[in-house]
C-alpha cells in the first residue's frame, strides 16, 4: 500500500552501478560510496525486498530480476541490501528522523516494490553512515539475461 511504513525487520535494495562501488584488492566490489544514495526531492529510491513474502534468497532473486527488467544491469553492478531497522537506527544516531515507505510506481514502467527513504538531504552526514549498512550481492545470470533482453528489445523499438 502506498505510504505504508516498511517493517524494521525487512530489507530494501539499491541498484549499485560501477561508479557507486568501492573495489577491493581482488578487483571485486567490496562496498559502496555515498554516491550510491541518490537523494531526489521525494527521497532515496529503493526497492522493498519482501514486498512479496518468501525466503530471503527468493526475495533477493525477485528484486534483482525486477531491477533488471527496469534498468541496465551489468555483471560489474551489485544489488545492495540494507535492513530497514538499521537505517532507522543509524539516522536516529545522526539526529535525523527518516521513514522508509512503500511507494509503488505504475508509470512509465510498473515497479511494485519501489520504496523511498524519506528525510535525508543530498550529502547528508548520515548517508556516509548508510554506506556501512549495505551488503552487496551479485546479480544472477538470469537477472543479467533479463536486462540484456530488455536492451535488445529497446534497440529494436528504436529502429
Amino acid at each position: 500500500m502506498k505510504g505504508e511504513e516498511i517493517p524494521p525487520t525487512d530489507h530494501v535494495a539499491l541498484h549499485c552501478q560501477r561508479s557507486d562501488l568501492e573495489i577491493g584488492e581482488d578487483g571485486n566490489p567490496s562496498g559502496v560510496k555515498i554516491d550510491a544514495f541518490r537523494v531526489d526531492s521525494d527521497g532515496i529510491s529503493v526497492n522493498w525486498l519482501e514486498f512479496e513474502r518468501g525466503p530471503f534468497d527468493d526475495c533477493l532473486e525477485s528484486v534483482c530480476r525486477l531491477f533488471a527488467s527496469l534498468r541496465d544491469v551489468r555483471p560489474a553492478h551489485r544489488c545492495g541490501i540494507m535492513k530497514v531497522g538499521e537505517i532507522n537506527q543509524t539516522a536516529a544516531d545522526c539526529g535525523r528522523e527518516v521513514q522508509v515507505v512503500h511507494d509503488p510506481v505504475e508509470e512509465p514502467q510498473p515497479n511494485p516494490a519501489h520504496s523511498l527513504i524519506k528525510g535525508c538531504v543530498p550529502d547528508d552526514v548520515c548517508l556516509q553512515r548508510f554506506t556501512l549498512l549495505v551488503e552487496l550481492h551479485p546479480f544472477s545470470e538470469a537477472a543479467l539475461s533479463i536486462s540484456k533482453e530488455r536492451k535488445k528489445q529497446k534497440r529494436g523499438t528504436a529502429r
Partner: peptide
Amino acid sequence: AALERQLETLLNEEEGEVEGP
C-alpha cells in the same frame, strides 16, 4: 597487481554504460 585489478574494474567501462567520473 592489486591496483591494476582495481583500476580495471573502476574504469573499464563497457559499451553503453553510464560514464563514471
